[in-house]
């Protein structure tokens, strides 16, 4: 198992290197630079700033210097938040984003697995069509629209929940989590329905029924384990997607997470911040994909022993 994890981590290095290289040169190709804003700066000041951030050197030299810093774990200073390093900014924003993503994932799992399993028990009846249509709608509505809609209904008309903020008022984390989790809930519902439909026709389910155990036990004890395999495989990419895709929701609900820094950095050509956030998030995606593979292997006794014997 450890050898498997180690080799997967090694494989991640070239992936990350490509991501870094492409991002590094891409942001520099984009028109404008960190210090070319509408507010005019005198050429002397601009030159001094560029010298301070090594922007006056040849691009290749900048690239190599950046990689050198990166190996030491230093993502460099932010261009737009003077005096603060990218490491600090990520350390401040990431816990918020991670918390939001975690709640969103819980929402997605609860709603998604629930709806999927319920739908699978009576396929092609109302009990199937209603949750699955809802899931389809969930996939189709972007959070850009869902967020404001939820604010309108629960925040303004019903006045049940705060319309924005994070940790300032009780319940202000609910709407962002639902908005972010909705699309994933819909995907998980479809995955768990398909998984359960397949498993519930297996011979061993018939064996379980022949034992005379109650139907709920047949579904929960014998069905879920195999039926949720596709969902588990999806969890890693889903969580990584939640982490890196939360900037819209963070902007709508004024959540001080990493996503907002990321968006602002892109507008401001804050090269080091864009790069730092990209490197950080792509590493997370790699790690979560790996974690979900490991979890998947562990859930299947057969794969578990194979992986175990490789150590």
């Amino acid at each position: 198992m450890w050898r498997f994890i180690g080799s997967r981590l090694l494989q991640a290095i070239p992936v990350l290197l490509v991501v870094i290289t492409v991002t590094f040169f891409l942001v520099r190709v984009a028109p404008g630079g960190p210090f070319s804003s509408e507010k005019a700066v005198t050429p002397e000041v601009k030159a001094a700033l560029e010298a301070q951030y090594r922007l006056d050197r040849p691009v290749l030299e900048q690239y190599i210097a950046y990689l050198g810093d990166l190996i030491r774990g230093d993502l460099g200073p932010s261009f737009k938040y003077p005096g603060r390093s990218v490491n600090e900014l990520i350390a401040a924003g990431f816990p918020v984003t991670a918390e939001l993503a975690l709640y969103a994932l819980l929402v997605a799992l609860l709603i998604g697995v629930g709806a999927g399993v319920v739908a699978s028990l009576r396929p092609n009846t109302a009990q199937d069509y209603i949750p699955m249509s809802a899931a389809m709608i969930g996939i189709c509505i972007p959070s850009l629209l869902l967020g404001p809609l939820l604010i309108l209904v629960f925040g303004i008309y019903l006045d049940w929940l705060p319309v924005s903020g994070w940790g300032d008022m009780p319940g202000d984390k609910i709407l962002p989590a639902i908005t972010l989790g909705a699309v994933y809930a819909a995907y998980i519902a479809r995955l768990s329905r398909a998984g359960m439909l397949e498993v519930m026709t297996q011979d061993y389910i018939r064996t379980a029924r022949a034992k005379g155990i109650p139907e709920w036990r047949v579904v929960v004890v014998h069905g879920l384990r195999g039926g949720l395999t596709p969902v588990v495989a999806f969890l890693g990419p889903a969580f990584a997607g939640l982490l890196s895709g939360s900037f819209v929701v963070e902007t709508i609900f004024q959540v001080p997470g990493l996503g907002r820094f990321y968006v602002q950095a892109a507008f401001n050509r804050d090269y080091t911040m864009i790069l730092g956030a990209t490197v950080f998030l792509s590493s997370l995606i790699v790690v979560f994909n790996l974690l979900s593979d490991v979890l998947n292997a562990w859930m299947n006794p057969r794969l578990r022993s194979r992986a175990g014997q490789n150590t």
Partner: peptide, 11 residues
Amino acid sequence: FQDPMTCLNPY
């Protein structure tokens, strides 16, 4: 049942 390969819960 017939097929002992598929009739026991693999998990």
